[in-house]
Design a protein around this nucleic acid. Structure first.
Lengths: 224, 224
DNA sequence: AATCTTACTGAACCGCGGTTCAGTAAGCGA
DNA sequence: TCGCTTACTGAACCGCGGTTCAGTAAGATT
């Protein structure tokens, strides 16, 4: 019966929702279960979020910000960029521990038919991109990485309306750092899906090696 | 009122189900809609497949086999391996045309909590892997590619129980060809997700360039 | 033509679960 | 102490949609 402030309760409910999606999947998500997890009535959940749909959308955003906060912590550490990058790569891939991952499979499929969620994911992705790009840029300035515009665009040198972009934080091809970050993130996502869907077919440790190689080749560090 | 053989009707229904999932998403899939799409009664759908769940599982398998059939066609063409590989890469990435893609977002998220679907996806993935590995192996034998065991595993040279595997069709690290195929597939999946979820943030053509570069570096072809 | 199999329908069933709403009480300010 | 705001509940509502089932007729088989 303990009354809490609206914001505190909302946060509780969001956390419970994320846990629920994480363990049973979005498909099986019921507001009643979320409420039961906190010993509350289903009506309260609807009271704070007006609809289940809104609850889910908020939960995705909340989960995303949680992960980002940890990522920024790693990215902002007082260490050489090489090490920070490695730690980011390692932490990004799904493991038993920290980062919730299965929720993003649901988020992706939801985003395809829900404009709200799509834009949420877009924002989150841009922030992720900024985190990676920041570390890479640090490494370039420290002389750890050598990023050349190299073999970026292969076949589409024709119709790029704005060849140069002034803002280095956005995922615009043309900025070599940004491109490297995007490619690394894509590879990470692809590997993560495999890890989740195909179980232990390929060892997580092996995958970490693969991304590291990939990053090395993109960032001009000699492999092997 | 036209009666059809059970197998023909089943196939029709599966195709309709795939279309429906593709356009409205698994979340919103209703058996009534599938039936309506063919001008049939919902009961008939349940008559052929006993449950909606089974229908969806069958639809995933069917969609997967469709895509694979086309992939095998490309892979088996009478062309140099380099060209076949490029065409595979290009065709794999989601585009307006052929290959259905959004359905796989739903398939992935479903697989996380459905053993049946998970094993279906596992089988499909193994077949995809075999297709890519086959083309790569052709290229190696023809001298187009130079695959060395190179920088495969970076940090886990310690605990590989079975260092050598005899079957070259499986995704076992240790076989350099198989490893290359797995890495390429992972990158393709990651790029595809971005293309679908983030819309036209990065051009499809640009991504094709990225995968090509990646494949080139894995297959020992000099870039740029 | 008679019969048997089987694809197919219509209508009803029914449980599930999100949402509503009238009412309760906990905290807080005066 | 009174009263006002507001977090919170319980029960009922209700529409949606998967599934059931008894019945129909199309096509094959003889």
């Amino acid at each position: 019966m303990s009354r809490k402030s609206a914001s505190a309760r909302r946060e509780e409910i969001l956390a419970a929702t994320i846990d629920e999606i994480e363990t049973t999947g979005l498909r099986a998500l019921r507001v009643a279960d979320v409420a039961a997890r906190l010993g509350l009535s289903p009506s309260l959940v609807i009271y704070h979020f007006q609809t289940k749909e809104a609850l889910v959308a908020a939960a995705f955003a909340h989960a995303g910000e949680n992960d980002l906060a940890l990522a920024r912590e790693i990215a902002g550490a007082d260490e050489p960029a090489t090490e920070r990058l490695t730690r980011l790569l390692t932490w990004y891939l799904p493991s038993g521990s920290t980062r919730s991952w299965t929720i993003w499979m649901d988020a992706w499929s939801s985003a395809l038919f829900d404009e709200q969620i799509r834009s949420t994911l877009t924002v989150l992705d841009e922030e992720w991109h900024a985190v990676f790009a920041g570390v890479i840029r640090d490494g370039v300035q420290a002389g750890e990485f050598a990023v050349d515009g190299g073999p970026d665009a292969v076949g589409d040198d024709s119709d790029n309306g704005d060849p140069v972009d002034t803002n280095p934080d956005e995922a615009i091809p043309g900025d070599a750092v940004a491109v490297a970050a995007t490619r690394i993130l894509a590879f990470l996502d692809g590997l993560s899906v495999r890890l989740l869907v195909r179980g232990g077919e390929v060892e997580r440790a092996t995958m970490i090696g693969w991304v590291t190689d990939f990053a090395d080749s993109l960032l001009g560090r000699d492999e092997a």
